[in-house]
Design a protein around this nucleic acid. Sequence first.
DNA 1: CTGAAAGCGCTTACAG
DNA 2: CTGAAAGCGCTTACAG
Lengths: 329, 329
Amino acid sequence: MVKKEKVTIKMVADEAGVSKSTVSRVISDYPDISDDTKKKVREVMKKLNYHPSAIARSLANRISKNVGLVLPSDEDFFLNPFFQESLRAIAITASSRGYDTMLVYNDKDETTAINRLVSANKVDGMILMRAIVNDKSIQYLKENKVPFVLIGNSLENKDIYSVDTDNFKACQELTRILVENGCKKIGFIGGDKNSVVTLDRLKGYMSVVKEKNLYNDKTMIQENEFTKLNGYRSIEKILSDNEDIDGMIVTDALIFRGVVDYLTEVNYGKDIILGTFGAEHQLGYDDRFKVFNVDVQCMKMGQASCNKLIDMLDGQKVNKMDIIDYKIM
Amino acid sequence: MVKKEKVTIKMVADEAGVSKSTVSRVISDYPDISDDTKKKVREVMKKLNYHPSAIARSLANRISKNVGLVLPSDEDFFLNPFFQESLRAIAITASSRGYDTMLVYNDKDETTAINRLVSANKVDGMILMRAIVNDKSIQYLKENKVPFVLIGNSLENKDIYSVDTDNFKACQELTRILVENGCKKIGFIGGDKNSVVTLDRLKGYMSVVKEKNLYNDKTMIQENEFTKLNGYRSIEKILSDNEDIDGMIVTDALIFRGVVDYLTEVNYGKDIILGTFGAEHQLGYDDRFKVFNVDVQCMKMGQASCNKLIDMLDGQKVNKMDIIDYKIM
DNA sequence: CTGAAAGCGCTTACAG
DNA sequence: CTGAAAGCGCTTACAG
């Protein structure tokens, strides 16, 4: 077997009897190259099994063909199925458009990881997978004029590109459904208080509580982390303070699992109607419970955010904010 | 505010009154540069907020400082919490060693995605997150002499670098525990038959079944996909064919959830002892069940695989195979 | 429609 | 201990 050597543009050019410039142009599929030479060059490329070096291209034209994915570094948050599924959708979408995906784990108050990717020119743009209150990453990306799209909603930055669920409306609708099903006293369990998603959903819930004049007590609202344990403890706490609760809003699949665990343990069933965020397959509960869930369609979100970023990089005009529809079932 | 311009090595060199070569050498921390100039150059770099272009470095020295992560593209498989947790460990480990992580989703019988990353020089090495029978990716990486480490076990390739759980032994131990707890007739539910993990665990189970001369019927063994639904249907099938089953081995957290769902529905409890793979927090079940689980410690696996790959890239000597210990509880 | 040449921002023998 | 120069493999005005 012949020793493999990296095939370069030079070798293709020589073999095809044209200049490097010409080869370069057929790589990029320039319109003003004659069909004949295009064809010839392509044949040679195939014959030589030539693949342009992305690195060299990047250096020459400052385009990396990489998108950066910014994930929360807090374990609890990341364990959320939402991330796993969006991440997959993003990577697959990127790939289908000729981009590769780079991962960054980002701390709440640090931008060093992001900074590294950006200043090393490793990515053309970024996707942020959550927004927290007073988000440093968003600040950084704006200041450095890095193209990015946020999955979520930033309270402080309304002029950025984003893709989001209408969490206020979704949670409002969900709460109303519980009311229509007879609930008089509805509790709320959310994730991290600094997470904008939690806040938006809380507002939706509150709006119905006020509108319908439902009984309302602070002990009915718990916000902590995005964990199963939090769900377990929060529902325990709420029930011990409010025996007569007949409905619960839960903002997250992981938390929901903890809630179901506790309710199963103490033998609750349909006495409490549950409204939760999360797709059916992420939840896990059985017939003993009555559950309404809003599916925010993370696959769609991931896809939309990635397409939006790449459209931006392509210089296309895109909306500032896109709202992805949810499904309540 | 001054318009931001990319700071290059040239500008640092000029400002510090040295040559580009020298700056380059202090970037790489060469030993034979005088402390004085090192210090001076570093000051200038900081003052100018200089960050070397990773792209340019890559082109010059053919090192990308990226590791590629090869994930299964089949949705079912990927949804497994195992991947999510290993992935995070890998990305964090890579980052701590100055590497960034690139994602590739790979089809069973295709190597195009991998090929793209490799031939474009975007990565220095790869981590494969599973092995299937007759794995094309492994073949490809071997042939192209791409450094890689496999998380798992390849039946056909014993000469590659890998990190794995001793799945045979773990499943053997798990099955024995069920026997010690009085089980006489133990079923088995696994994931994809083409997945080596499933095969290894099945062998461990079978070895005990034979050793202890347990009743053994093909209808007690189900292998399908890595999904919750599969768990649900498989246990249903097994129970309908074998009413007197008193133990079940389940190879996967997601499948386990389906099993628990079904058993809950039909009001089974401690009559069947469950042995499963998956960490406590991935499982989700309650006191009604008696469960033993083997935690393969995915964080450790991810970490070990990434460190191993980077050690290899650094030219260090590493073991061919590393076995990560598991915990049964 | 195509080519020669400069340039992208680094690294690294080589020479001193 | 340090510098000048060539080179990594592309792209892209510019000229024809």
